[in-house]
Amino acid sequence: MSSALVVDDHPVVVGAVRMVLESLGYETVHVASSGVDVVPMIRQHAPKLIVLDLKLRGFGGLEVLERIRAIGLDCKVVIFTSADPEHYLTRCRRAGAMAFVTKSAQLQQLQNAIKAVRSGYSFFPELLVNSASQSDLNRDERESIASLSTREMEIMMKLAQGESNKRIAEAMNLSHKTISTYKTRLMLKLGVSSLVVLRELVKRNGLF
């Protein structure tokens, strides 16, 4: 059986995913805890399946997905995350993921997703969104978030989590000036005046 790669920084989650993979016959399971390690590990171990979290140190999962696709690496990706599918599912599908499973789901759902992907099928839950129950402000905010690029999304989340421009720049291998430019652009796109308001917007829309 081909090897698999689990990308997550929570040991308990890694253990659970490893158990699922081993039950499906994967004898070798590699682990990466940071987004920056993923591409080198794919090149080194050539796993045919990757179980990828979106909330990672360094590059986030979306950025990892786009790098895998841009380089043309041959592997199938299952997203296993606590991130809100309403904001991330479509982005992940566009970036090349073949399945999306939330961590709140039963492990059986992850197992079913892996089986489907291994057989060449995709596995995405249906999004049931009652737009009539959303306020106009909430709809406007979600539309603004949906308009963000992958990198803007990653930087927005790091800023909302309280990380400094310097720390974000180091983690993403970008210049401090570049992060500052992204920060200004985000404030304009989202119509917020401070990082406090940005954090409130992110929390209000269920991004963490």
Rank of each mutant, 00 (worst) to 15 (best):
S33E: 07
I155N: 05
Y121I: 09
G35S: 10
R67S: 09
H45M: 03
K177P: 00
L62G: 11
C75M: 08
K115T: 05
V13Q: 01
P11K: 13
G96Q: 12
M172R: 03
R93F: 05
R185Q: 13
L188H: 15
G120D: 05
P40Q: 10
R57P: 06
I42P: 00
L54C: 03
L190W: 05
H176M: 11
H45T: 01
N112D: 15
V6W: 00
R94L: 15
Y182K: 07
A70V: 04
Y182F: 15
I179K: 06
V17Y: 00
F100A: 00
Y182V: 07
S82D: 02
E163Y: 12
S147D: 07
V78H: 05
R94S: 12
A105S: 15
S119C: 12
G60Q: 10
V197H: 13
P11C: 12
G25H: 02
V12P: 08
P11T: 09
L56F: 07
K203N: 11
S82Y: 03
K115F: 04
L148M: 15
H10Y: 09
R142L: 13
I179M: 13
V36F: 07
V29P: 08
Q111E: 15
R139M: 15
F208Y: 12
N205G: 10
M172Y: 00
R142S: 11
T102E: 15
A160P: 10
A46S: 10
I114R: 01
L62K: 06
K48C: 09
L207A: 04
V31L: 13
D136E: 12
L186A: 08
G96K: 09
R18S: 11
F124W: 12
T178V: 13
I155F: 10
Q108T: 12
Q134R: 12
L207E: 08
V77N: 00
L65W: 01
L201D: 08
K76A: 03
T81S: 15
V51E: 03
A132K: 12
A97V: 04
K103S: 06
N130D: 11
N205C: 11
N205H: 03
L137P: 02
N138A: 14
L201Y: 06
D9L: 14
K189P: 07
S3D: 13
A46D: 09
L201N: 08
S23W: 06
K166D: 08
V129E: 14
V197N: 12
M1I: 13
